[in-house]
Amino acid sequence: MAKVPEMELMNKGTTACPGCGAAHAMRYMLKALGKKTMINIPACCWAVIPGVYPSRNLEIPLLYTAFETTGASSSGVRAALNAKGVDPREITVVGFAGDGGTADIGIQALSGCLERGTDTIQVMYDNEAYMNTGIQRSGETPYGAWTTTTPVGSQKAWKKNPKKNMMEVVNAHGIPYAATVSIGHPELMIEKIQKAKDIPGPKFIHIYAPCPTGWRSDPSITIELCKLAVDSCVFPLYEIEYGEYKIYKKPKNKIPVKDYLKLQGRFRHLPQEEVEMIQKNVDKEWELLLKKEEFTNE
C-alpha cells in the first residue's frame, strides 16, 4: 500500500470550512500527483478555498474556468502541451470539479473530453450538493436528503430521486480507467490516483468528500463518515480498468445504513420505512456490483 507522501503542495490558510472533505481531496490528490501537475477548476468550493489575490494557496499552475467547461479547458491545456511536445506522462493535466460541475452542469464537456480520448484525469469530488452556493440539490444528492431546494416541512419534500451513478456514465464512454476513492482511506486513494496517472488516455476519479456544513454533521466526524460509508456499502470503493470491475476494499463486517444516516442532520427527518427502503436499495446496488465484478472477471 502506498504511504502518504510528506510533500505538501497545499499551503496553510485555506478558507475551507472546518473539517472540509474537499480540502482533504485536494491535499491527497496533489500528494499523489506531485508538482508536475496542471489543474483546471470551475466554479465550485475549490474556486473559493484558495482565497483571494494575491494569495497563492496551491503550489501548482491553476486555471479557473466557467462552470460547464472543465472538460473542454483541460482538453485545451493538454492540446497546448502536446503542441509544445510535452509528454503526457511528464505533466499531468487534471480537471478538478465538484459534483455539480461534473455530473450536472459540466457533463457535456466531460463527455466530450472522455470521448475524444484526451489524456487527462477528470476528478469529481463529491460532496453531494451545490455546497458553495448554499446547499442546493444536485444530481449526486442521494435519495431522502434535505437541501435548501428540497426542504423538509409539512409536505415532506425531501429529495425523491436517486443519486446519479457517474461511474456507469463514464464507463459507458469506454475509457481505460475509472475509480471511486474515499478520503477516509488516503493510502488507497493515493495508490489509485498514482495508478491513473500512469495510464494513457482519459481517466476518471470519483472522490467521496463529506461536507459538514451541508450534511449538517459535526466537523470532527468527516473521516468517520467516510469509513462508515464504505463499511455500509453506501459508497463502495471499486475501480473499472478497461471494463473490468474490481472492488478493492470490501467491508469485513457490513454495517446497517442507518448507522451512517443517523450521524447526519440532512437525513434526520426520514421515517423508519424510508430508512428501510434506502437500506434495500443499497443492498441491491451492492449485489449488482458484486455480480458485475464476477461477470467481468470470468
Binding site: N11, K12, P54, S55, R56, N57
Partner: peptide, 18 residues
C-alpha cells in the same frame, strides 16, 4: 500570468475562526 510571491498562509490566519 501573474504568479505572486505570497503563499496563502501569509495572508489568511484562519486560527481566529476556532
Amino acid at each position: 500570468a501573474v504568479i505572486t510571491d505570497c503563499p496563502s498562509h501569509l495572508m489568511t490566519k484562519t486560527g481566529s475562526w476556532r
